[in-house]
Design a protein around this nucleic acid. Structure first.
Length: 986
RNA sequence: GCCCGAGUGGUGGAACGGCAGACACGGCGGACUCAAAAUCCGCUGCCCGCAAGGGCGUGUGGGUUCGAAUCCCACCUCGGGCACCA
């Protein structure tokens, strides 16, 4: 690239030998990076344990835990967009180190995952080999940035000693159940003790009859207990992605029904999988958002994802099936009288029990005289209910989410041939299956109230079902739609979903008529409870976390199966369960549209690993290992705890170490600052909070939340260019001329987007190190805008901050001789005022992470210094030293170098940050703007601290003000001392 | 559709309800130089004006206020999230 010769050729003959250019910067940077490493500069002492070296000095300092989101070591390496947050946390960490904190800042690697495995499938190279190579490259790139990380704590999730503890945490989750009375997780040993003592009845699908514990056989007992565990196996409809050869969590599937990673088709199919009971924590995950200092949009996204809704479960008796009820969840029990039909999800198990062989010929409701053709299904009217239902189920299951959207959500469905009885009115109402009701939410069945629910309204229109108004719409609603109050609901253009007074809602036992919606909900709720028809219920959109993947490159489960096919936890002493060697990493299925073949995890093929003989306490026995692996999120759920005590073999973290770093007088505990991208708003951040709460409940960590403060950094984006064919061209070779863009002589179009290979607009840190040095890159990234904003990369603008560093260097070091040009003569008062104003501003900006304005202030101060040097030929030490120290968090290498050249030994990383002298912050006189009717007419000088009258007097004394006020009546004078005087005239 | 967030010079961006555009990039002019680069100095929101000066300006339209980029309402545009969740 040509740029390197322009900027990088520091050794060319006509250049001063000691000019701060890329070559010199790189030399300095390498030297200081070695120094920091050799001198353990950024080793953060733990209070106890093997990492306690240096604790004696650190003990008196308050701690600060600064954390970056765990990166995935990609084979592509870093581009300049990646380290934005890492630089931000490093500046912040270095600043607080100088402010006397014991700062923990480390960087590890989230190294399990699909890309390494897919690469292994293609090349036959073991994922561990590629993963370690990628980590080594990323470490090199990050080291060259001069990040002040504690290198001892840089764990990778793929390290066996690390995933040993990931497996250990899984065992804790498997070994726990959620006690709703205590509202926390407890060990299952407590649960069994309660069963044995008879203080708790064993309930659940494994014990449908409610047989007492003492009478259950051992296998049934285990099944009952397994049903309580926070980690359980369940046959559930899962997101199966053939192209990735694995199932995915709901969070990993996009709205289009494709995989978030790779954008492959995802199919829904039943499969037995490991699931973690995150929904048990739903309320606490919502409530504890109030404890943390996070961006409000992230909290909103988490609340929405959890999707708590309050309502009631109501049972509708199925006509002709004594004792069989259809249970629905509704948030509007007040509209129960308006339920004119019911819908169950196509997969709902009740369907098989209620579908009659033939369409009913009896007239069961006033509204329906015969079974209309439309009700009989969309595949012809000549088949009976079982066949119609079967065909509809096939139709619904075969549709991808994408197809459902493409159909514009026209409601489809089939009448099951069965009826239920509305418990309020006694009416028999038809039961449909339709795919707009989802099996996974609520009870998988609804009561349809078409007058007051838009979806039900559309379905009722489609199928000609009765629409009965039971909540009176307000006048505005009717007027906006040109409706008369007398108009029947069937003539409305849409459902009335608002609150209002209940109407036509009375039977012999209860009347809601005239009640407001909230009161009606309460009254009907009481009636339902009294009649034994329903119970108040809270439902969540959040589902339990599907936790197994059919992959090789992940943590094996510490689980084996015995002869009964039931899972048995390995004792902690048998950890780690290491991944076996494998030569063929490919999952069995790769065709992305093959949704019928069963998944087969690669580990299942390693027969001599799967089949094991173990002594788990009752003598040696044969067991089969679990062959699924954990999802990538597992390792990243708790790395911030392992950073604290990365070498501990006895615990995932020593309790004293954990308390030291996680507890704080400033908040309710957790990492003091966590910086990362907004894309983890619901995935990583929700999972990590969940694990943390489990560990908290079980006494392994001391704080309720993992991350006290969260900060979302923005993204660096970049221009990209397309030629006449619409093909992306190499952005670095495009030139701008007169506001247009050319590649050679051909004009190209400018676009804007993420930096990446496909847009051919990647700029790498290595490019920047070569052309400017790491300090310039750091400074530019911090200067280009506020840390939380996204902004476009502009290599041309990098020169600005590079020149600043050159100027500062030149103010301290003679470019020809390398001698410092600093002297001990005092600075003039104005320069001192500039310096101390700078210190005050930079100090405040640093603490507030406003690095862009902090840098601007440093520019100003250095510009003043340049002027002084120009006049005196020397730079006053009293200005230079604070300036260098203020620069140190931002451009640490150059600051260290200058600090050394100023005669100091060692690193300035722990030298106190400069403090502003208040004496130089006060000024005798301030410029005050004078307004007339809000328009600025003049500036006048006023003594600091002058009273209102003095301000007004000074303003009136100004000729322009006097002219503006001549001949008009001053009605009011507003004085804001030191800022403004405003004459209101007229 | 619903929920967030953001719209300021040619560009990136500053601005406790109080002088809009700090700082930087780019541009223009000057000094130095045989020349160029580098460096240093000055100017640089738009319009009118020789100038002094004046007018207009923070997506659009209203409002609150002595005073609004900032607060409120409506709308437009862009970015992000969710999307048949009963």
């Amino acid at each position: 690239m040509s740029r390197s010769s322009e900027h990088g050729g520091g050794s060319s003959d006509d250049r001063p030998r000691y000019r701060y250019d890329a070559a010199l910067a790189t030399t300095i940077e390498a030297r200081w990076q070695d120094y920091w490493e050799d001198h353990h500069t950024f080793w953060a002492p733990n209070p106890v344990g093997p990492l306690a070296e240096g604790w004696a000095e650190a003990a008196g300092r308050p701690k600060l835990y600064v954390l970056d989101m765990f990166p995935y070591p990609s084979g592509a390496g870093l581009h300049v967009g990646h380290p934005l947050g890492y630089i931000g946390t490093d500046v912040y960490a270095r600043y607080w180190r100088m402010r006397g904190r014991n700062v923990l800042h480390a960087m590890g690697y989230d190294a399990f995952g699909l890309p390494a495995e897919q690469y292994a499938v293609q090349t036959g190279q073991h994922p561990r080999v590629t993963t370690e190579a990628n980590i080594a490259n990323m470490r090199r790139q990050l080291r060259a940035l001069g990040l002040g990380h504690d290198p001892r704590r840089g764990v990778a999730t793929t390290d066996v000693p690390y995933y040993r503890w990931t497996q250990w945490i899984f065992l804790q989750i498997f070994g726990s159940w959620y006690d709703p009375d205590a509202d926390r997780a407890r060990p299952v040993t407590d649960l069994v003790a309660e069963f044995e003592a008879g203080t708790r009845a064993p309930v659940g699908p494994a014990n449908p009859d409610g047989t007492p514990w003492a009478e259950l056989d051992p296998v049934t007992r285990r099944r009952v207990v397994d049903g309580y565990r926070l980690a359980y196996r369940e046959e559930a409809t899962v997101n199966w992605c053939p192209a990735l050869g694995t199932v995915l969590a709901n969070e990993e599937v996009t709205a289009e029904g494709r995989s978030e990673r790779g954008n492959h088709p995802v199919f829904r199919r039943p499969l037995t999988q490991w699931v973690l009971a995150i929904t048990a924590y739903a309320d606490r995950l919502i409530a504890d958002l109030d404890l943390v200092d996070w961006p409000e949009p992230i909290k909103v996204m988490q609340r929405n994802w959890i999707g708590r809704s309050v309502g009631a479960n109501v049972r509708f008796p199925v006509v002709g099936h004594a004792g069989l009820d259809l249970e629905v969840f509704t948030t509007r029990p007040d509209t129960l009288f308006g339920a004119t039909y019911m819908v169950v999800a196509p997969e709902h198990p009740i369907v098989d029990a209620i579908v009659p062989p033939e369409w009913p010929d009896a007239i069961l409701t006033d509204a329906v005289a015969d079974v209309p053709a439309a009700w009989r299904g969309i595949f012809g009217t000549d088949v009976g209910p079982p066949e119609a239902v079967r065909r509809y189920r096939e139709f619904a299951a075969g549709k991808s989410e994408l197809e459902r959207q493409a159909e514009g959500r026209v409601k489809t469905g089939v009448f099951t041939g069965a009826f239920a009885r509305n418990p309020t009115s006694g009416d028999a109402i038809p039961i449909f299956i339709a795919d707009y009701v989802l099996m996974g939410y609520g009870t998988g069945a609804i009561m349809a109230v078409p007058a007051h629910d838009q979806r039900d309204f559309e379905f009722a229109r489609e199928f000609d079902l009765p629409i009965r108004c039971v909540v009176a719409p307000d006048d505005d609603w009717l007027a906006e739609r040109g409706l008369d109050r007398a108009a029947p609901a069937g003539e409305w253009p849409e459902a009335f979903v608002g609150a209002g007074a209940a109407v036509a809602s009375a039977n012999v036992g209860v009347s809601l008529d005239g009640l407001a919606t909230d009161d009606a909900k309460r009254v009907i709720g009481e009636w339902l409870a009294r009649e034994g028809l329903g119970t108040p219920t809270v439902t969540y959109k959040l589902r339990d976390w599907l936790f197994s993947r059919q992959r090789y490159w992940g943590e094996p489960f510490p689980i084996v199966y015995d002869d009964d096919g039931l899972p048995v936890a390995l004792p902690a002493a048998m950890l780690p369960v290491e991944l076996p060697e494998l030569h063929d990493f490919a999952p069995r299925v790769l065709d992305e549209d093959d949704h019928s073949t069963d998944p087969e995890p690669p580990l299942a093929r390693v027969a001599d690993w799967v089949e094991v003989e173990l002594d788990l306490g009752d003598g040696p026995r044969r067991y089969r290992r679990e062959t699924n692996t954990m999802p990538q999120w597992a390792g990243s759920c708790w790395y911030y705890l392992r950073y604290l005590d990365p070498t501990n073999d006895d615990a995932l973290v020593d309790p004293d170490v954990e308390r030291y770093w996680m507890q704080s007088p400033d908040h309710t505990g957790g990492v003091d600052l966590y910086v990362g991208g907004v894309e983890h708003a619901v995935l990583h951040l929700l999972y990590a909070r969940f694990w943390h709460k489990v560990l908290h409940d079980l006494g392994h960590v001391s704080t309720p939340e993992p991350f006290a403060r969260l900060f979302n950094q923005g993204y660096i984006q970049a221009h990209a260019f397309t030629d006449a064919r619409g093909v992306y061209v190499e952005a670095a070779e495009v030139e701008e001329r007169d506001g247009r863009f050319f590649l050679g002589e051909d004009e190209v179009q400018r676009e804007y987007g993420k930096m990446g290979k496909s847009l051919r607009n990647v700029v790498t840190p290595d490019d920047m190190y070569r052309d400017y040095g790491a300090d310039t890159l750091r400074l530019y990234e911090m200067f280009m805008g506020p840390l939380d904003a996204s902004r476009p990369w502009s290599t041309a603008d990098v020169a600005g901050v590079h020149r600043f560093l050159q100027r500062l260097w030149r103010n301290v070091v003679d470019e020809q001789t390398g001698e410092t040009i600093v002297d001990d003569e005092p600075a003039d008062d104005e320069t001192r005022r500039v310096l101390h104003r700078t210190i005050a501003a930079v100090d405040a900006d640093m603490a507030d992470m406003k690095f862009n304005t902090a840098i601007a202030r440093l520019f100003e101060c250095n510009n003043r210094l340049t002027q002084v040097v120009g006049e005196r030929g020397r730079a006053p030490r009293e200005v230079v030293e604070p300036l260098v120290l203020m620069l140190a968090p931002l451009g640490p290498h150059i600051a260290e170098e200058l600090w050394g050249r100023l005669g100091h030994d060692g690193s300035c990383a722990f030298v106190p940050f400069p403090a502003a002298d208040p004496a130089f912050l006060v000024v005798d006189e301030v410029e005050v703007a004078v307004q007339v009717n809000g328009k600025v007419r003049a500036q006048v000088a006023v003594a600091t601290g002058a009273d209102d009258a003095a301000h007004e007097g000074a303003a009136r004394a100004d000729a322009r003000v006097a002219a503006a006020l001549a001949g008009v009546m001053v009605r009011k004078v507003v004085v804001v001392p030191g800022r403004i005087v405003n004459f209101v005239v007229g």
